[in-house]
């Protein structure tokens, strides 16, 4: 497999704040690559540099063989972008929006009309295409936003958190369509802070945090890196202080990590079942009420927790 995108030490600073700190990775033709990271990790900044909107502070990248700094026009023609925030004309209908953006990508006449119909079909808005975008629900707007990125059938599609803030049904539809697009040969760079999405979609994942790419590889590779560990998640009552529990739990033999987020304590351990009794005893002694307990097989969440000491959730 050849690389359609190569990134070398790409960095971006806003003033003296380093939003992206010299990251390097490759995306192979035909794969779905996810950039997984929490809010403010630098995902959008990375996408903006790769789509030639922002000039990198340092480093370089090539897309479809063209440099993103010297050959911007060729790069722009090769990629499609679905921005994180809706970028549509609310006073135009879906069809009018698609028509305008299609023409910005050089489509016209009959081929434009055909593509608009295909895309409307794909995003399931053929029957509502004539209504102004401002009358749409959040999910419908997101679908139009995605449709615009697909019109010119780019070889490489950037999708920046396309499922943020929408209902589960729309989200399902979007994830399925990403898989469909990929099946038809489109390479996708997908950013998200949902571990489940990265797990479901991607061939390979890059984990980004505070502007650093802290891990990269297929899911198996990444989960193997944390070893044969499970994650034990304790949901505790709101009136209690889970930090005291975490402190006690860390002293237990076999616990690799114990972290607190909101009202839950996440524990990484190779022996979850065996620890369970001890943990519950500690909680009782401390007067902490446990509402529910989850045990999870090794996953990306655990990888992130293991690498950063923090949970991925916001």
């Amino acid at each position: 497999m050849s690389a359609i995108l190569e990134v070398h030490n790409l960095a971006k600073s806003y003033g003296n704040f380093d939003a992206v700190k010299g990251i390097s990775f490759e995306i192979h033709e035909g794969e779905i690559f996810s950039l997984l990271g929490p809010n403010g990790a630098g995902k959008t900044t990375t996408i903006s540099m790769l789509s030639t909107l922002y000039t990198p502070t340092s480093g370089e990248a090539t897309i479809c063989g063209y440099s993103i700094t010297n050959d911007t026009m060729a790069v722009k023609k090769c990629i499609g972008v679905v921005p994180q925030d809706l970028a549509l004309y609310e006073d135009l209908s879906a069809r009018e929006n698609l028509s305008f953006w299609g023409q910005m990508y050089g489509l016209s006449g009959k081929s434009l009309k055909i593509r608009i119909d295909e895309v409307l079909e794909q995003i399931g808005l053929l029957d509502k295409a004539k209504l102004k975008v401002k009358t749409y629900s959040g999910g419908m707007k997101r679908r139009v936003n995605i449709g615009v990125g697909l019109l010119h059938q780019p070889r490489l599609l950037f999708m920046d958190e396309p499922t943020v803030g929408i209902d589960p049904q729309s989200r399902r539809a979007i994830l399925d369509s990403v898989k469909d697009l990929n099946k038809n040969g489109m390479t996708v760079l997908y950013t998200t802070h949902y571990m489940e999405e990265a797990e479901e979609l991607s061939n390979r994942v890059g984990i980004i945090d505070h502007g650093d790419l802290i891990a990269i590889g297929s899911q198996e590779e990444l989960t193997k890196s944390v070893g044969e560990t499970d994650t034990l998640i304790l949901h505790v009552g709101e009136e209690t202080n889970p930090e005291t529990l975490a402190e006690e739990v860390r002293k237990i033999k076999g616990v690799l990590k114990a972290e607190v987020t909101d009202h839950q304590v996440s524990i990484i351990t190779p022996t979850a079942e065996e620890l369970l009794a001890q943990v519950v005893t500690h909680a009782n002694n401390l007067g902490i009420k446990i509402k529910s307990i989850d045990i999870r097989e090794p996953n990306l969440e655990a990888v992130f927790l293991n690498l950063t000491g923090r949970a991925l959730r916001d």
Partner: peptide, 14 residues
Amino acid sequence: AGGTLPRMLISPTS
């Protein structure tokens, strides 16, 4: 501010 100008800028338009 609304993102349509950046979107135009990342399309192959000068």
